[in-house]
């Protein structure tokens, strides 16, 4: 408290009580001290505390001067922060009513493909490791394919860390593990015939589809909970869009070279988040 008083006096000065006041209250003082202590793992000395407080006072003075000169007006950081605060404050304001079965049935009909179970395969493969060199691996695979087709013995394939025989694997999992070329080849393959070679990140593969369960659409009842969730997500999204539309109507948007109406979407581009992660 004593230090607070000192700063109060030094910032305000004694000469004129007309000047605007920068006040650092006890809470903030404690916060400044605690923050420093957390970083340094010891309490600040008197001089250090004076320095910390001086910085905070200067920051306040500069911020006020900046505002009085209107420097906050065209600042992208200030603008973005205010916009984010506003967007956050306006979320989940209105409750969304519980959807009835007819509504969810309609959603189910509309989004059928989203919930389909993936196609499943039984599959065998012969693998030729990239460690042989890409050309040598492909050559060996082609030779082996010839032998497999004529029923000649010996394919000369390599051991592999993933299964050489799958009793039951989904098409998306094949895509994940071997890449899209492999998954496409497996999807198109006629059962019982060796095809290839197909390249993956590991090398070259010959494959034979031994059986297939096509993609299927689960019944409505088993998806009810998921559909309900999707419906709520959709409603929230719609509510946010509607709010933005309402707000847009309050403004006339002018863009260089063109004049847009109240619902001009172009303005939204200016509040897109910074492309920080790719």
């Amino acid at each position: 408290m004593a230090i607070g008083a000192v700063i109060f006096l030094s910032a305000v000065g004694l000469k004129s009580l007309q000047r605007p006041v920068v006040r650092i209250d006890a809470d903030e003082l404690n916060q400044l001290g605690a923050y420093w202590e957390q970083q340094m793992q010891r309490p600040p000395t008197r001089d250090e505390l004076r320095g910390i407080i001086g910085e905070r006072v200067d920051e306040e003075i500069l911020a006020r001067e900046a505002r009085s000169q209107g420097l906050d007006k065209d600042d992208i950081i200030v603008r973005r922060r205010l916009a984010q605060k506003m967007a956050f404050a306006s979320e989940d304001t209105a409750p969304i009513p519980e959807p009835d079965d007819a509504t969810l049935q309609a959603l189910y009909a509309r989004t059928a493909g989203v919930y389909a179970t993936p196609e499943r395969l039984a599959l065998s493969q012969v693998y030729f490791s990239e460690t042989r060199g890409a050309d040598a691996a492909k050559g060996a695979a082609l030779a082996a394919l010839g032998r497999l087709k004529t029923g000649a013995p010996g394919t000369g394939g390599d051991p592999f860390v993933m299964p050489l025989t799958y009793a039951d694997i989904t098409l998306p999992d094949l895509g994940r593990d071997y890449g899209e070329d492999y998954a496409r080849a497996a999807a198109a393959a006629a059962p019982g015939s060796w095809i290839g070679p197909v390249r993956s990140a590991y090398g070259w593969h010959l494959l034979r589809v031994d059986g297939r369960i096509p993609s299927a659409q689960p019944a409505f009842a088993s998806l009810r909970a998921q559909l309900r969730e999707a419906w709520f997500a959709d409603q929230r999204q719609k509510a946010n869009t509607a709010m933005m539309d309402r707000l847009r109507k309050r403004y006339r948007v002018e863009i260089a070279g063109a004049i847009a109406g109240g619902a001009g979407r172009a303005s939204s581009a200016t509040v897109a988040p910074e492309p920080n992660a790719d």
Partner: peptide, 25 residues
């Protein structure tokens, strides 16, 4: 699916020393 598989694979895998019959399970 697996029952059908075992038959098909058994026939085709004959002679292919690297390929064990799939889906013994």
């Amino acid at each position: 699916l697996l029952a059908g598989t075992a038959l098909a694979a058994g026939a085709l895998a004959a002679g292919a020393d690297t390929v064990k019959p799939p889906a013994k399970s």
